[in-house]
Nucleic acid binder design. Structure first.
Length: 552
RNA sequence: CGGGGCGUGGCGCAGCCUGGUUAGCGCGUUGGUCUGGGGGACCAAAGGUCGCCGGUUCGAAUCCGGCCGCCCCGACCA
């Protein structure tokens, strides 16, 4: 097909909007792909929607290929659907009422709707099932940002799998892993599958697809040797060894007047921060627990949450006094009647710890001798940590989460009574998985990874048009012929037939970023040809119009 | 929710501190002439409740108060 620029709604901008910072935000607005209508609320203009549709079609093909059945559930749902699972209290829900005052919720995900439907599954003979749809998700995000990177309404492809047993779930999960890899690869996006923290909402296992980019809200940790990738929140890096002073036979009390922070403590005692330990009293449910990490490490809230399988909060000053008999700056694991969760880094060696007496610390505190902790990996991984696979150096990069896949188990099916009769004649809850891809976010991630100072460089599979034909004065006819030839060869063509200067047309072509630019002008007309330029490489060659079809 | 910034024709900005004619500039838009391979030149023109409400004042884009919206950092985040 051929689209004529003179008739397209394609409002390109010479300058980026003042409020745009992320490259994808600037370029997609400047290129006339999207326009904002409120915080986190975006319209897709004709070009932007073409890209969106191409991504959608790639996803559709790949999910169909693993047996997915496309369907469609509504975004507007009765509130009782969410009361069934208790997720009515999730803070990002948009609540509304119909004219009769009945409560409704805008879906922010579709486990509830799909599980509701899955009650009609009766027998193991009907399993497995793989359902998916493309639908709007609405989320009352506390802070939308970065153009398409985090929004309040967006189209997600979400799949839901129903299996009779966990082996079936594992297989469905694995098939989605592979499908997602192919999807991102076809979109020309570099994305890595990493372990994610499943956090409070539980589930047995979840993995993220992270696309390294210049802007984003996630952090990808990767090994310099390419053998380990992880979400920095969940990464299992090993910290550099602690610089420890000589060991002591028993803990030794030392006065530390005026010392409040780890840095002050290390300075005061003339030791490295890594030779100290940091005690963080937290409350989960109704128990108070002391989390202990090395002085130069930070506690990973996600990891601790996963360890507890529950949310937690910092203990209050009163709770701390009551449990430790000392204030926040002098807490430690020795001689207290409190459960201690110590980070793995503290398994070996002796560290300085708070003495549970104000302004006093203990030197030479050793796990297993002076206190009995439960060990767990609860530290936040850092740039420079050692790779758990090969010992190489790990580095952190900014990334966008473009997909997330979950093994849900039976949480939703039990809530809805979505059961089936198994081979053994017993009624069992369906075993579920859910799998999401944000289309607009994928689009933004592609732009983040694929642009230069002049504009977007679309991978062909997701480009708004395959070729951009620039018609310069005096060569309108040959330009139209070129567009026709390309179109007949099966390409989607944007023909710039506007009465504009050459420079403006070239600038727009670079900005819009179609993979191929074909220019017909006086220069090329001299030998009856057109100039074909590759957007990515900038390589240009002069060809006969007739040759265009083959080239493309 | 905490911190910071911004709100003036379609876009990007100046003016505000120190209140005072018809609120400017660049780009874009419309008509015209010339031009024509990297955002060209000239002529003419259209287009603005200065975010909203209230207050101070003879007089408010400008000063004061409240509210709203948007962006960034943080908190939060399937």
């Amino acid at each position: 097909m051929i689209a004529r620029a003179s008739q397209l709604f394609l409002p390109t901008l010479r300058e980026p909007p003042a409020d745009a910072e992320a490259a994808s935000h600037q370029l997609l607005v400047r290129g006339g792909f999207i326009r904002q209508i409120g915080a986190g609320l975006w319209s897709f203009l004709p070009l932007g929607w073409r890209v969106h549709m191409r991504i959608e079609q790639i996803i559709r093909e790949e999910i169909n290929a693993i047996g997915g059945q496309e369907m469609r559930a509504p975004t507007l749902t009765p509130a009782e659907l969410w009361e069934t699972t208790g997720r009515i209290d999730v803070p990002i829900l948009f609540h509304l009422e119909d004219s009769g005052g009945r409560p409704f919720v805008l879906s922010w995900t579709h486990e509830e709707s799909m599980t509701f439907l899955a009650r009609e599954i009766q027998s193991y003979k009907q399993l497995p099932q793989v359902w998916y749809h493309f639908s709007n998700k609405d989320r009352d995000e506390p802070r939308p940002r970065g153009g398409l990177l985090r929004v309040r309404e967006f189209v997600m492809k979400d799949s839901y799998t129903f299996d009779a047993d966990s082996a079936g779930l594992d297989a469905a999960f694995a098939r989605h892993e592979e499908a997602y890899k192919r999807i991102f690869e076809r979109c020309g996006l570099e994305a890595y599958l990493v372990e994610a923290e499943s956090g409070v909402m539980g589930g047995k296992e979840s993995k993220d697809f992270l696309a390294p980019t210049g802007s984003g809200e996630n952090e990808l940790m990767r090994c310099e040797n390419g053998d380990y990738f992880a979400d920095a929140e969940a990464a299992r890096g090993a910290p550099p060894p602690a610089e420890l002073p000589p060991a002591l036979a028993a803990p030794e009390l030392v006065a530390t007047p005026g010392v409040g922070t780890i840095d002050e403590l290390a300075d005061f005692l003339s030791i490295a921060a890594s030779a100290t330990s940091k005690a963080l009293p937290v409350v989960t449910g109704d128990r108070l627990v002391l989390a202990l990490v090395r002085g130069d490490d930070k506690l990973s809230e996600g990891k601790l949450e996963t360890f507890f399988e529950a949310a937690f909060r910092p203990a209050t000053d009163e709770e701390i006094r009551a449990a430790f008999g000392a204030g926040g700056g002098s807490l430690g694991p020795v001689g207290v009647d409190v459960e201690v969760i110590a980070d793995e880094a503290l398994r070996e060696g002796q560290y300085v710890a708070g003495a549970n007496e104000d302004a006093k610390h203990l030197r030479g505190v050793r796990a297993g001798r002076d206190y009995e902790p439960t060990f767990a990996d609860i530290r936040q991984a850092k740039d420079g940590d050692a790779c758990p696979e090969c010992g190489g150096t790990l580095h952190i990069e900014t990334a966008i989460e473009v997909g997330h896949i979950f093994k849900l188990g039976t949480f939703h099916s039990q809530a809805f009574g979505a059961t089936f009769l198994d081979e053994d004649g017993r009624e069992k809850p369906l075993i579920m998985g859910s799998y999401g891809i944000g289309l607009a976010r994928t689009m933004a991630a592609v732009v983040e990874q694929s642009h230069d100072e002049n504009g977007i460089v679309w991978p062909q599979a997701v480009a708004p048009y395959d070729a951009h034909v620039v018609a310069l004065p005096g060569a309108e006819e040959i330009a139209a012929q070129a567009a026709e030839t390309l179109s007949e060869a099966g390409l989607d063509v944007l023909l710039d037939d506007r009465d504009q200067r050459a420079g403006e047309k070239f600038a727009d072509a670079d900005l819009i970023g179609c993979p191929l630019r074909v220019t017909a002008g006086r220069k090329s007309l001299e030998d009856g040809k057109v100039d074909v330029r590759d957007r990515a490489s900038g390589v240009e060659k002069r060809l006969d119009v007739a040759e265009l079809g083959k080239e493309a």
